[in-house]
Structure formats: structure tokens, C-alpha cells
Simulated assay, not measured.
Amino acid sequence: MIRIRGRVPRKVLALGLPTAWGAVAISYKMTCPLAQQTGFEARLATSAVFFAVGTGLILHVRKALLRELRQIRQVAGVAQSALLRPLPPRIDGLNVAAAQLSADRGASVGGDLYEVIATEHGVRAVMGDVRGHGLAAISTAAAVLGSFREAVHDEPELGCVLRRLERAHARHLRDRARAEHPSSGAEPEHPVAEEFVTVLLLEIRQDGALYALNCGHPWPYLLSGPRVDPLTRADPLPPLGPFPLPPHLPEVPCGHLLPGETLVLHTDGAEDARDAHGRFFSLRAALEKAADQVPQALLGSVFTALLRHSTGTPKDDIALLVLQNDRSQRRPLGARGTARPATTHPQPTTHL
């Protein structure tokens, strides 16, 4: 109730001030003897009065628009931070850093998604990329992230988590299809039939053992000392959307993340960024230069190099997630720091 009472005087003032300025100008023109004269001095005075009134109106409208814009940005910032929540710097012995760059000017999030959650099954992370960008992509990312945040605590296997994400994505597409039906009068920016999302699921257990499931997403890079290698070269599954998941979803073993080693998850926008000559950005080379840095500094170095390469805002959304093992433990028997390839049946891949 207090808020309502506080807004009424502001609205009255917003309408009353321009009205008062207009009344002053009309009163001057209708009643002031000077305004009725046709001499040069009289015309000059009349012009000065109307110029002052016009300037006051413009400044008032500009101030009101800027205030509304600040309020809209504050609301958008709260909504966007709720979608991609700021990650804590440390999760169950892992140093964590993440950042996202939207291709849409003025937006802090886009179609990329990530999350890291400590569960009784280990630390579970997701990195995803929705086709396209804009509001439609943000709503799809919200549906997938919401399902992940709930499923990682309920499901003991990554395969079951992935199936939950698939069902959430399918429900979201059905809802969008009803909203974008021709009878609604809305013209869809991206038809639902063409919608898909790439998803990478990771599980890091207490002993550093790594397991993954990948649906059409780029594999992360493993930083072990000065070496930078893909985590694995196993063929990913198709993205969520165009094709159903196979009946059997075995987790892909990816070795161990040893103390001091770092994983860098990314969306394909990082490696698809081009310079003025059409050359792609080398994420691997940028990581090699920053491999000895802490996660937050590593993110800053990579984004600086990427923006310098693309001479400004890139054409696609970009997200990076850094996970560094800071646990104190002995090296697991038979574990290797570098990635070892896992054998899976080849699957068709789709790139955004």
C-alpha cells in the first residue's frame, strides 16, 4: 500500500509539469501584450519564451525516460541473474569461475547456460547452448536449467539427469508451439520444429574421477600444467530436440581431474568468433598462454584475447566455465591427468 501511495504523486508530477509548461506558453501568447506585437524585439522575446518552454519539456521527458530505462534494466538484471546465478568461487574443493557474453546488445545473458552444483553423487556441472539467441533462447535456457537444478539431487545417474532435461525441453517446446500457433497472431522468430539445445553434463567425484554425457556440445579442455588437450575425443550424441535419446545412456569415463588440473567448459561461440579477415579464434592457444593463472584471471585473459580478436562484440553468445581441482589428496591409483579417449558408438553431430 505504501508503494502505491508513493507512485501516485510521481505520476501526477510527471503529467502535471508538462501541462504547467504548456499552460505558461499559452497564457503568454494569449494574454501578454508583448506577444501581440509584431516588432522584431517582440518576436525575439516570444521565441525565447517558447524556446525555454520547449527545452524544459524535452529535459523533463528525457529525465523520465532515463528513469524508466534504469528501472527496466534493474528488473532485467534481477531476472537475468536468477537465470544464470552467480557461482560461488569454491564448490566442494573445486575453484570455480564463469562468465557469459551475450550477442544481444544490452543483455547480460543469452542462449548459453551453465551451472555447478555439489550433490551426494559428486559435483555436477552443465554447459549448454540453445540455438539462436534473444528472448526465445533465454526461455529455453531457463527451462533446461530449472530441470537440471532439481534433477541433479534426485537422480543417481547422469543418464537419468539427461532424460529429465530432455523431457523438460520437450514440454517447453510444446508450450511454445501452443503460444506461437497461427491463431495466437504471434510470428515465431525461430520455429519450434527447428529448436534444439546442445548439452554437456559432467560429474566430478570425490576422488577426481570424471564422467560425462554430451549431446552435440564441444568437449571441454583439460589444462594439466602447460598442456591443453580436449577432455576426450568420444563422439557426442545428437543435441536435445531433433532426435530422441537412445534407450541406453552409459556415462563416458574421462579419467581423473587431479589436484591442480583445470577444466574449461565453453560454448561454440568462443571458437567460432572471427576477426576482420574471417579467421577463427584459437581458444586452445589462448588457454595455453593463460594456463598457469587462477580461474578468475584465466577467464579475464581469454575474454580479453577473444574481444581483441573479434574487434568488439562477437556475433554469437559466448560462455566459459572454469573448474580447478584444489583438493588435497593422493594421486588415484592408475589415474592420468590427461584425457583418455572413451569408446562410444558414433553419433551425428549438429553445430550451432
Rank of each mutant, 00 (worst) to 15 (best):
H217E: 08
L265T: 05
T232I: 01
C254E: 03
A305T: 09
G216I: 04
R5H: 06
G22C: 14
D207V: 00
S47P: 00
L333H: 14
A212D: 07
A339V: 05
V264T: 08
K29G: 11
T31K: 06
L306Y: 10
G159S: 11
P218F: 06
L283C: 05
S47T: 14
T38C: 01
G6Q: 15
L240C: 06
A186K: 11
H277G: 07
Q80T: 03
E195P: 00
R7T: 14
T19V: 11
V75N: 07
H266K: 03
L87S: 10
A125T: 07
K289M: 06
P18D: 09
M127C: 14
R178M: 07
S27K: 00
P188S: 04
E41I: 12
L173A: 14
D268Q: 09
C215R: 01
E120H: 11
L162H: 10
R279A: 12
L320K: 04
L249N: 07
F40C: 00
A143W: 04
V228M: 03
H60Q: 09
G16K: 14
L34T: 15
L44R: 15
D207L: 02
L15E: 10
T313G: 10
R124A: 02
P9V: 05
R284V: 02
S310I: 01
L299P: 07
P33R: 10
D104M: 11
G122T: 05
S47Y: 12
R340P: 00
H181T: 03
E115F: 00
T31N: 10
L65Y: 09
P250R: 13
Y211V: 05
G255F: 01
L323C: 11
G334S: 12
G22M: 15
A82H: 13
S102L: 02
R62I: 01
V199P: 02
R336V: 02
L263I: 08
A48C: 14
D154P: 00
Y114N: 09
L83I: 13
V252P: 01
D275A: 02
R70I: 03
H351A: 11
I2M: 10
H309M: 04
R85V: 05
G6I: 03
A82E: 15
